[in-house]
């Protein structure tokens, strides 16, 4: 498969994730969409490393780090969501707007 196919797939998945971030109401759902975006980026990195960087495979190493950081981030994000839920008994991001005008 040519590299472009993987790249376009990655772009599509990224945009799906972007839509989810922009259009969903629950914080947990937004978090899942962010995971989609991160995975899309990983696909791109790994496919590019496999096709073009066949001596050092830098992209794949970086993909490992991305997965790790994504995991850490999910943990923290969920902690925050739990906290907000405890204070407001909702995870609706519409209602977390204290910083508005």
């Amino acid at each position: 498969m040519p590299l472009e196919a993987f790249q376009v797939l990655s772009a599509a998945l990224f945009c799906i994730g972007l839509y989810g971030v922009l259009a969903r109401r629950s914080a947990v759902l937004i978090l899942m969409s962010i995971e989609l975006m991160l995975n899309a980026v990983n696909i791109n990195l790994i496919a590019a490393a496999a096709h073009m960087d066949q001596t050092a495979f830098t992209g794949q190493i970086i993909a490992i780090f991305v997965i790790t950081v994504a995991a850490a981030e999910v943990g923290l994000a969920l902690a925050i969501i739990l906290r907000i839920f405890r204070n407001r008994s909702t995870v609706n991001v519409d209602e977390v707007d204290l910083m508005k005008w």
């Binding site: 259009a23 969903r24 109401r25 609706n92 519409d94």
Partner: peptide
């Protein structure tokens, strides 16, 4: 929640 989408979801489709 009845609706699980934001008010800005059409715009989000366009942005995506």
């Amino acid at each position: 929640p009845r609706i699980s989408d934001n008010p800005q979801w059409p715009l989000a489709i366009v942005a995506g």
